[in-house]
Design a binder for these strands. Structure first.
Length: 506
RNA sequence: GGCGCAUUGGUGUAGUUGGUUAACACGCUGCCCUCUCAAGGCAGAGAUCACGGGUUCGAGUCCCGUAUGCGCUACCA
């Protein structure tokens, strides 16, 4: 039997990185086993589901390269089937109509309400399955329904016994029936509820393996009971450890903001391959211990058995722009930027430069060779794609900013540079050919003649040419920026004025 | 409240049948390289394997208990 897995998010917000990890694991398993990976949007909660959210999920999967093999299934479209299944269970006596009027619940205090109700019940010694309508005769039930009385449909959980299933990750699981309430399948307004919908859809889609977050582990027993009531084969389950915030609490949008959204990583310059690699290592590790893994290696090494059970902490520091997300994720992205074949990096850099109006059509033909050399040079110390348009701006445009600290450190500290650098420009103008080697020779000779250290001119030049205090080997930079632009920038007075003004020192 | 799951350095993980000084990666510190910053190389700090019992010649690995965290317990998903 071929493996069929699904990713089934509810479109009630952007794509959460925990959900993205679930999608990844499902996808990896499908690739590994030669099975199918399907996408089902669980939009039964019409109040909270949005089209924008569905868009974000689809975009996110596409960005990560997790292509699904069949048409997207929208759960809301199957509501009739869900209802039919519930009514069938009523007919068969496996479910019953509950005519108890619906109790209004306040979303904000449900958890508390649940605990209170449980406490009260245990104090009174009442079984939470003691529903007065559970054993209503069929005739009576039919009569009241026919009379138009509203009812919810609940699954009848047997009085004695327990459910079992073997979770691939968490091992054998069992739960006493007495721990499970007769769950509502259909609301009194006829709206099918989560547990019913998932099971019916999974049956319909012939899902063989349900791979999802650990938060569903306990509820799985209810679903197993439903499969059994319906008489459908129970799929295999593999629950994934949760991803927690640094304080070991739940990772949520409300508390942690955009750091938990997958699209944030796309928008802040992550390479899909890097983020995918990082995500794969949350709750799973290949047996050989290797961490930098291509998609092919990921697929080859992946196994549900190696997923572990303890939750993973996603480490980031709020309010610290330098550590806005997990440092290892950042490091991994830098590794990819450094080591990817330039041809693969190029399209992503192109998009980034384009978005910042730094792209020139010549980069696609005449200047392609130059561009590749420039990228090779600057990518060595970049962390995200954003750096190509940020720190790297001076390589692509004459309109770049000077960092005040750099100007202070490399220019302003030594007033003679104001004359020395334009003089160096004179020498560069006469240097032919103009390469890293000849630029170095020229600069060193000039330094000697002027009686200053080469480092002074080098660092000064770096700031004049790039606006920064740090960067690649300066002679390489001269060659990449080119003779004409190097000379112009060395002669420019812009940074001097800016720094003076900024310091109020005029 | 009940039930369930988890617990190896700051973080991610290895340690799958109990057996030398608990391994790797990120991060951190120092040194080398050097025109700066990275990268790279070298060295180093950091874990009495949550705690307490037990089984055993021997336990991170098995058993029991405790604590903590998380999840579920809804006519939410």
């Amino acid at each position: 039997m071929t493996v069929r897995v699904r990713f089934a998010p509810s479109p009630t917000g952007y794509l959460h990185i925990g959900a993205a990890r679930s999608a990844l694991f499902n996808w990896l398993y499908a690739q590994k086993t030669g099975g199918k990976f399907l996408l089902r949007i669980e939009d039964t909660d019409l109040q909270r589901s949005t089209e924008e959210s569905t868009r974000s999920i689809i975009d996110g999967l596409e960005w990560l390269g997790l292509t699904y093999n069949e048409e997207v299934v929208f759960q809301s479209a199957n509501a009739d089937k869900h209802r039919a299944a519930a009514y069938k269970l009523v007919d068969e006596g496996k479910a019953y109509r509950d005519f108890t009027p619906k109790a209004e619940r306040d979303d904000a205090t449900v958890k508390q309400g649940i605990a209170e109700r449980a406490r009260a019940q245990s104090a009174e010694g009442t079984d939470h399955r003691s529903n007065p309508f559970r054993d209503l005769s069929k005739e009576e039930s039919d009569k009241r329904a026919a009379a138009g009385e509203a009812f919810a449909v609940r699954l009848k959980i047997p009085r004695h016994g327990k459910t079992h299933f073997a979770d691939i990750v968490y091992g054998p699981q069992e739960r006493e029936y007495s721990e499970i309430e007769d769950l509502v399948l259909l609301r009194s307004d006829g709206h099918p509820l989560y547990n019913l919908s998932v099971v019916i859809d999974d049956i319909e889609m012939n899902i063989t393996h349900v791979i999802r977050g650990q938060d569903h582990l306990t509820n799985t027993h209810k679903q197993v009971l439903l499969y059994e009531a319906i008489g459908a084969p129970v799929p295999q389950f593999a629950h994934l450890p949760l991803i927690l915030a640094p304080n070991k609490g739940k990772l949520s949008k409300r508390k942690h903001g955009e750091v938990v959204s997958l699209t944030t990583y796309r928008d802040r310059g992550f390479l899909p391959a890097a983020f995918r690699n990082f995500l794969a290592l949350l709750g799973w590790a290949p047996s050989n211990g290797k961490e930098m893994l291509s998609v092919d290696e990921l697929v080859q090494e992946f196994s549900l058995e190696h997923i572990h059970r303890s939750p993973a902490v996603f480490n980031f520091q709020e309010n610290d722009p330098r550590h806005w997300t997990d440092e290892k994720a950042l490091w991994m992205n830098a590794e990819y930027i450094r080591n990817l074949a330039v041809e693969e990096l190029l399209p992503m850099v192109k998009a980034e430069l384009r978005a910042n109006k730094l792209w020139r059509e010549e980069y696609d033909d005449d200047e392609r060779e130059w561009l590749i050399k420039a990228l090779e040079l600057i990518r060595q110390r970049f962390f995200t794609l954003k750096d190509f348009s940020g720190q790297g701006r001076a390589y692509f445009s004459d309109d770049f900013d000077f960092e005040e600290a750099a100007v202070n450190k490399n220019l302003r500290k030594e007033p003679r540079l104001k004359e020395l650098l334009p003089a160096l420009a004179e020498r560069f103008e006469e240097t032919s050919p103009f390469t890293a080697e000849t630029a170095e020779a020229t600069l060193r000779k000039f330094a000697e003649e002027s009686g200053v250290k080469a480092g002074l001119l080098i660092n000064g030049s770096r700031t004049m040419l790039t606006g920064q205090a740090v960067g690649p080997s300066m002679f390489e930079v001269f060659e990449i920026i080119g003779q004409k632009r190097s000379v112009e920038r060395l002669r420019s007075g812009v940074p001097w004025f800016d720094a003076m003004n900024a310091l109020g020192d005029v």
